[in-house]
Design a binder for these strands. Structure first.
Length: 489
RNA sequence: GGCUUGUUGGUGAAGUGGCUGAACACAUUGCCCUCUCAAGGCAACAUUCACGGGUUCGAAUCCCGUACAAGUCACCA
């Protein structure tokens, strides 16, 4: 059996949306599961839709996800070029289009697009389904040549017999049968000499030796048309792996046009590429075990086409968020620190605070990196806060009870010379014992008094440690004064 | 409208005729742990697999119909 070869064939029309990335992932996994080749082909035959810089987004996304291609632009494997516009220049499509004409699988058509469009609209208005019956099919060879020589614009259309039906077996959806009389004789080669997707995709997949075509299921019903071309050329049909759509909700597919979340958007929000990849692998595919966290390498091993589903899967940001948190928590501390560095810098600008210590209190508490700045903003700024924050039923704490605790803490802290976690810990435990209180009745108000927040990452020892003696005492002093003033009123 | 495909809980899903009185995970809710938050632990959460028929001793699993949804019917991919 020959080596498996799959391809990802995006159009450079903007950012990379999640459904697209998942298709790339599946194509990659299908190939790598069998030690095959993964090929990148840029489908830029629609010059009108091309977006500046879109190719770079494709390259950088695949790179960020470690979806490295074995062949593609700038990585020749002998069947290039891998950019369709360059293949147009090489005359590949024109050559094969004419070959197909000779083989009877296509014909030259001089019809004007406006005329066909008008007919189509008429049919639609009458509620009839429109199928173009091309009169050019009956043109003689001489007539065709004459009109071409006269400079008349033309396209090449697929020729389809209207009787019978065409079937194929999709690896995930099973047997698909389509009546030939419902198939449109689509344009293969446009009047500008560029191929349409319908044609380029067949030619390139064959010429590039693609064995498994992995793509979205929107092609499920047009695949028989492509197979007709393979047959006309006398080529072997590839295996087809059509993937179910990724949905935004019950009714809408995730799409670029809706401005839905792209890979870039998610990364900008603080989701990790590996977590995104892991999550989308599970959208439409399920493993045979209960394992949910997979590295790319593990996915290559575990992935199998049999477990790709057939119904659309709704993209659930909640689960991605959870999974992202798992990845973050599983990181070793040094890796974690470098990962969160930009976000940490955004939240804490004061250079006196130890980033390592801050990273430590954040480590097990963050799901999405964008949560970080707000979680740690109290280090830089200590705004006025409401003394009602001292009230906590569960902690058995309130402003009245907090005041003596804070005064005592301040007194003890002033005499503490070794300012580290262990000494702070001992100090507070001593205070708890001395005052005959519960841990929370001391630590809770102190934490509020030095952070100004009811919720913080880390506890009062960690925070005091990071803040340092001077700042901790300054904040404590201010909070005590505030409490005294308010309680005396 | 024609054609193609799909339909298990709020979400991803397991399930291929009896071991499912429907796994697992996310979310949600409650409890525990705990100085807060988070994490972690425990528990609850589909009398039922879109609906209606049929086949069978037995169906989420097979068949038919209905409904709903998505895709497609471009000189877009």
């Amino acid at each position: 059996m020959s080596k498996v070869r799959t391809r990802f064939a995006p159009s450079p029309t903007g950012y990379m949306h999640i459904g697209n990335l998942r298709t790339a992932l599946y194509a990659y996994l299908v190939a790598k599961h069998d030690n095959g080749d993964f090929i990148l082909r840029i489908e830029d035959t629609d010059q009108a839709r091309e977006v500046e810089g879109a190719c770079d987004i494709i390259y950088s996304t695949l790179n960020a996800c470690n979806l490295n291609y074995d062949e593609g632009p700038n990585k020749d494997g002998g069947v290039g070029p891998y950019i369709q516009s360059e293949r147009v220049k090489a005359g590949i499509y024109k050559e094969y289009a004419w070959k197909l004409v000779e083989l009877g699988g296509a014909h030259v058509c001089f019809c004007k697009s406006e005329d066909i469009e008008a007919q189509r609209e008429l049919a639609n208005a009458r509620g009839e389904s429109f199928l173009y019956h091309d009169p050019c099919k009956n043109l003689s060879k001489a007539e065709i040549q004459k009109r071409i020589d006269a400079g008349e614009p033309y396209v090449i259309r697929q020729t389809i017999d209207t009787f019978g039906s065409t079937s194929y077996t999709d690896e995930v959806y099973g047997t698909i049968t389509v009546d030939n009389n419902t198939m449109d004789e689509q344009i293969l080669l446009k009047s500008d000499g560029f191929p349409t997707y319908n044609f380029a995709n067949v030619i390139d997949d064959h010429l590039m030796g693609i064995t498994h075509v992995v793509r979205g299921n929107e092609y499920l019903s047009s695949t028989p048309k492509y197979n007709l071309m393979y047959d006309a050329f006398g080529w072997n049909q590839p295996k087809y792996i059509h993937c179910p759509p990724v949905m935004k909700n019950e009714h809408e597919k995730l799409s670029k046009r809706n401005g839905d979340a792209s890979f870039q958007d998610l990364v900008a929000k603080g989701y990790l590429p590996q977590a995104i990849l892991n999550y989308i692998a599970l959208l439409g595919w399920s493993p045979e075990t209960e394992q949910e966290i997979y590295s790319l390498d593990e996915l290559c091993v575990a992935f199998n086409v049999q477990h790709i589903g057939t119904s659309g899967a709704i993209f659930d940001i909640n689960k991605l968020t959870w999974m992202n948190g798992v990845y973050l928590r599983n990181m070793d501390l040094p890796t974690y620190e470098t990962t969160i560095e930009p976000w940490l810098n955004q939240g804490v600008k004061n250079p006196n605070y130890d980033h390592h210590l801050i990273a430590e209190i954040l480590h097990q508490r963050v799901n999405v990196l964008s949560e970080i700045p707000e979680m740690i903003d109290f280090f830089d700024t200590f705004p006025q806060f409401d003394t009602s924050l001292y009230t906590n039923k569960k902690m058995k704490s309130n402003p009245q009870m907090a005041l003596p605790v804070l005064i005592k803490s301040k007194e003890l802290l002033e005499n503490l010379n070794e300012w580290d976690y262990d000494h702070l810990h001992d100090l507070f435990m001593d205070q708890v014992a001395q005052m005959g209180l519960k841990n929370g009745q001391v630590m809770f108000p102190v934490r509020v008094a030095i952070s100004g927040k009811a919720f913080t990452p880390g506890g009062c020892m960690e925070i005091a440690h990071i803040l340092g003696k001077k700042e901790t005492l300054a904040r404590l002093t201010r909070s005590i004064e505030q409490l005294e003033t308010e309680l005396n009123q």
